[in-house]
Design a protein around this nucleic acid. Structure first.
Length: 429
RNA sequence: GGAUAGAUGGCCGAGUGGUCGAAGGCGCACGAUUGGAAAUCGUGUGUACCUCUAAAGGGUACCGUGAGUUCGAAUCUCACUCUAUCCGCCA
């Protein structure tokens, strides 16, 4: 949701950005949007003039003589009626305009690779050695069964498809990963915060989930609430409508929450195991910073660096993908994905998604700050990145670190979070 | 679930029909004072939009949200939302 004035003044640029993101004129008609805005401005001017006149008359009434008074009142009433008519028309147009504005995506960074879909994503770097096993490696499901780490078949009976129940050392590992990442984020100055998984509707618009992908989110009609797909949703609205002091920035949150996704568009994909489930746990990095593209790009790099460090500490081979314009969601200015190596699938799978949203969400949540330099009020920039998301991250973790006897090595950095244990599994001593 | 109370500017808080964008305080900015700072004193300090513009200026709206009464609403009426406290229940 960029500024309408910016859209008018930079129409060519905006249309170019929309095209890069794969928008056609049918998706979003910028000319119609601008036309609508012009109509609103004209009507507003006209109705404000009426209001002005009416106010002037009202002010006279108190001091008017007894014989003038009825005339003034009558005139004022007349104007009032015309004003009401125009005002109603104005509300209608504004509602239409606002709905349209909610559909305007963020413009992509000039640095972002241009492409139609995920085929246009660019590998920026590949880190770590892909393991070569001198035995036949198990996939993560086999490892779980072998070590009595899960109840996948039974939980499907209870909770349906795409759910998981893991136990014993694997359950401990899942929680240890979050504790490890939360501690790391705290050391970088983030406030650790646990947040709810239910949300009212408004924050979904604030985040930019709505009006774009309603199918993806669980809805609780009895309470008119939604289940959150990520703590980003909650953190993005936590400070909504506030006017911050620049000295409060940047605000760094490490948010932990259970997350829920319907996976409506993923039918048939990753149906087994821990890769894609309806409910998972995520530690999220969320940053609120100044309205300065250099500043937010700096944070974007920093967030990426932190999650790369997580994967390195977990001793996982991974690659950094820069997501192309056509594969980015509407809110995003620039996006990197991290993908960790999954031996059983012989490919990299996404574990982290790191986005600079610039001021797009802040405009929706009305989150602003007063700049020290000139005292002006500006929208903040927001950024988000996965800290760690489980159980998905367990998949590359246990597959890459497995031994011939079915045990799994715990990387040195994580051992303190596992009570000093170096190897887990039924054959471990 | 039951019962009360409340929602005003960056924050706190006054304000029961026109002189209220709104007292006072805090905060913030600038200035004076000081060797420097604190304290003190002085001055200033809302947001959004429209119009005009080189700049200034002019105007409209906003006191939780929505409707209503009135020539005129922060103030009166109605509905709703949210918050706090107490009781009950509860991980």
């Amino acid at each position: 949701m960029p500024d309408i004035k910016f859209i008018i003044e930079n129409k060519a640029l905006v249309e170019e950005g929309l095209a890069k993101k794969g928008y056609t004129k049918e998706d979003l008609d910028i000319d119609a949007l601008i036309e609508l805005y012009r109509n609103i401005a004209a009507l507003k001017t006209s109705s404000q003039k009426l209001s002005e006149e009416k106010n002037k008359l009202s002010a006279q009434i108190k001091s008017a003589s007894a014989e003038d008074r009825p005339d003034i009142i009558a005139k004022s009433k007349e104007i009032g009626e015309e004003f009401k008519r125009q005002d109603e028309e104005l509300s209608k147009l504004e509602e239409e305009f606002n709905l349209m504005m909610l559909k305007v995506p963020n413009l992509p960074s000039p640095e972002s690779p241009i492409g139609p879909d995920d085929s246009g994503n660019v590998v920026r770097r590949v880190v770590g050695e892909i393991p070569h096993f001198d035995f036949t490696p198990k996939d993560h499901i086999e490892l779980m069964e072998f070590n009595d780490w899960s109840e996948m078949a039974r939980i499907a009976k209870v909770s349906g498809a795409r759910t998981y129940a893991i136990k014993n050392d694997l359950a401990k590992l899942e929680l240890a990963m979050h504790m490890f990442v939360l501690d790391k984020l705290r050391s970088y100055g983030f406030s650790v915060i646990t947040v709810p998984s239910v949300s009212k509707e408004k924050p979904l618009y604030g985040q930019g989930y709505l009006p774009f992908s309603r199918d993806e989110v669980y809805y609780l009609p009895q309470d008119d609430l939604y289940l959150s797909g990520t703590a980003e949703l909650i953190l993005n609205s936590l400070r909504a409508d506030e006017l911050l002091n620049e000295n409060e920035l940047p605000i760094l949150y490490a948010g932990f929450s259970p997350c829920f996704r319907r996976e409506a568009g993923a039918a048939g994909k990753d149906t087994r195991g821990l890769v894609r489930v309806h409910q998972f746990m995520k530690t999220e990095q969320f940053v609120i910073c100044k309205d300065d593209i250099n500043e937010s790009e700096k944070w974007h790099k920093k967030l990426l660096e932190i999650s790369e460090e997580v994967l390195q500490d977990f001793e996982l081979p991974y690659r950094v993908l820069e997501v192309c314009t056509g594969d980015m969601g509407a809110p995003k200015y620039r996006q990197y994905d991290l993908e960790a190596w999954v031996p059983s699938q012989n490919c990299y799978r996404e574990t982290h998604s790191c986005s600079n949203i610039t001021d797009w969400q802040a405009r929706r949540t009305n989150l602003r700050y007063r700049a020290n330099a000139d005292g002006k009020v500006r929208y903040v920039h927001t950024l988000n990145n996965t800290g760690i998301a489980t159980p998905r991250a367990l998949v590359p973790f246990i597959e890459n670190h497995q031994n011939a006897d079915g045990t799994v090595n715990i990387p040195v950095k994580l051992q303190p979070y596992m009570g000093g244990v170096k190897i887990i599994g039924k054959n471990a001593k």
